[in-house]
């Protein structure tokens, strides 16, 4: 869907991106991660041509973006900017309807769609729709920002640290919400963050950037298990095995059978959750499904494999 070939971006003398090549498949969510100032936002803005390439090329659906009209290119790409950027003179409804109105969609339909989206983002449309951005909390504004980017149903979404302006608890809620949403909407997403946990939780693949180069691009599990170099290893942190467990469902590590007297854990929890409880003193845990019937059991030895 998106293909980067030897992408270079320089500001004057300073080469921010030196040689970036990778490909993103349709429906995939790739997380860009790296230290602050490594060029993550720059890479996103190159994709929708908010800024121009210094070298290399970017293909979207096999067409060189430089041959496309930048305005219509951007109309087809949802973009959530790092600083939210809601239009302060428009109501929440008007903000969500911006792109549909640029595409001159029917007024009734787009209001309908805006309601649907706000609802989906967990904001009561009747309550918030007619408010102005300053009357919303930071977290609520970020949700509106996401709704605005999805409104015209673009195939591609660029999301620049969309959950950065909120406290850890709200952030977790938003992430869970987003994971649920991702299964409903089939979109190709480039997602920027500098939070490793968030990357591991959300990404199909993670791309680690540093010093203008891709250090490693791989699935979260593979990345955490086999960091390509010292930078990646230290960036992911000493606890990367723990992080890896958070992406493994507990059903992947359980044995068949059941342990008498053991407490239970729901099947959609991660191996990390199980480890937490085992370390807290349980000998083993029985995994249960939605009907509360036991489908397997897990103990500390199982997690070491």
């Amino acid at each position: 869907m998106i293909k980067l070939e030897h992408v270079v971006k320089a500001y004057g003398e300073q080469e921010v991106l030196k040689d970036i090549s990778f490909e993103i498949a349709k429906g995939e969510l790739v997380v860009l991660i790296g230290p602050s100032g490594c060029g993550k936002s720059t890479l996103l803005r190159l994709i929708n041509r908010m800024i121009e390439l210094s070298g290399g090329r970017i293909l979207i659906k096999d067409r060189d973006t430089r041959t496309l009209d930048p305005v219509s290119l951007r109309l087809g790409i949802g973009y959530v900017i790092q600083s939210i950027g809601l239009f302060s003179h428009m109501t929440i409804f008007e903000n969500v309807e911006v792109v549909p109105s640029l595409l001159q969609q029917n007024k009734k339909l787009r209001r309908e769609r805006a309601r649907e989206l706000l609802d989906m983002m967990g904001l009561e449309p009747a309550q918030y729709g007619q408010r102005y951005p300053k009357e919303l909390s930071g977290g609520q504004q970020q949700r509106v920002g996401i709704a605005r980017a999805i409104a015209a149903d673009p195939e591609i979404m660029l999301m620049d640290e969309p959950f950065s302006a909120v406290d850890p608890i709200t952030r977790e809620q938003l992430q869970d919400h987003f994971l649920g949403l991702k299964t409903q909407i089939d979109k190709t997403i480039v997602f920027v963050t500098h939070d490793v946990d968030e990357a591991v939780k959300l990404g199909d693949r993670i791309c680690i950037l540093n010093q203008g180069l891709v250090q490693q691009i791989d699935s979260p599990k593979a990345l955490l298990h086999k960091p390509a170099n010292d930078f990646v290893a230290s960036f992911l942190g000493e606890d990367r095995e723990l992080k890896r467990l958070s992406r493994i469902p507990v059903t992947d590590v359980m044995r068949s059978g059941a342990h008498p007297e053991a407490r239970t854990i729901e099947k959609h929890k991660s191996a990390k959750d199980a480890l937490n409880r085992l370390l807290a003193g349980e000998n083993s845990l029985n995994v249960i499904d939605d009907q509360n019937s036991i489908i397997g059991t897990v103990n500390l030895q199982d997690l070491q494999g």
Binding site: M50, L73, R74, I81, S83, L86, R148, L158
Partner: peptide
């Protein structure tokens, strides 16, 4: 505000 003009550009205006 710069964030808003960025957002406007990014929206495809």
């Amino acid at each position: 505000p710069e964030d808003q003009s960025n957002a406007a550009l990014g929206c495809g205006m």
